[in-house]
Design a binder for these strands. Structure first.
Lengths: 114, 114
DNA sequence: TGACATACCTAGAACTCCGAGGTATATTAT
DNA sequence: ATAATATACCTCGGAGTTCTAGGTATGTCA
């Protein structure tokens, strides 16, 4: 029912790669950052993000390593690889094309109802 | 694997309602029109469109009627209802918000790889 | 010591889309 | 005439994504 949920579909990987392109991050951090930077529009659930990260690692788009935080807590960081950067560029291009075409269709539709 | 396929997800209803806001259309026609107006980016399959139309009719967003074409062939036309127009406006707003936020995230990511 | 936040994970349900099939009629080519 | 193609509708089952709802473990704070 939530349209946002459906719209989100397909762009999550793009968003995750985009986040990682600015520096290594761990899962929990990505969720918080996406939520904050999107004004609570993209609130990924853990059950969504972790499988995605595992998938990205399996295809070699990211690599993980564990690191101890100042707090003593162990975190699993992800770093984007060259392959991941290339995938990011491709998906970015696809997104731009896609959104422009949706906007073109919408532009041709009738104005708001009375 | 096709990213376009995933991106399409969630916006199909929006696109269909948008098409119908410019006039009554039948299924086959919508597929052709979407394909043409998007430069073959949105090539809806029949197995996708027909269930969507049936769903929209069940929620009262569209109404169908059959009409004989000049060719003698019977077609099933769909007309958008007031409820459908309202849904269109809402989904349009959601789409604009969503795409702006994706662009904002992308704008904050690293530039293209060397 | 108990509650909460952090931090990771998975299995199963729900939803969307497509592939692949089916039916039927009109047009076009042979 | 008849075979092939295009039009036009439909449905079922599989594949892919995301969420729900759980689980585990540790650090912090009251």
């Amino acid at each position: 029912m939530k349209a946002d949920k459906n719209l989100l579909s397909g762009s999550t990987t793009l968003l995750v790669l985009s986040l990682l392109s600015t520096g290594d991050k761990y899962g929990y951090e990505m969720i918080a950052e996406l939520d904050a930077r999107s004004d609570h529009t993209f609130t990924l659930k853990e059950g969504t993000l972790y499988p995605i990260l595992h998938g990205l690692e399996k295809e070699g788009a990211v690599k993980s390593y564990t690191k101890e935080a100042d707090t003593g807590r162990t975190r699993k960081y992800y770093r984007i690889t060259r392959k991941g950067l290339k995938a990011l560029e491709e998906q970015k291009k696809e997104w731009v094309e896609f959104s422009e075409k949706v906007n073109a269709i919408l532009a041709g539709c009738a104005p708001a109802l009375a």
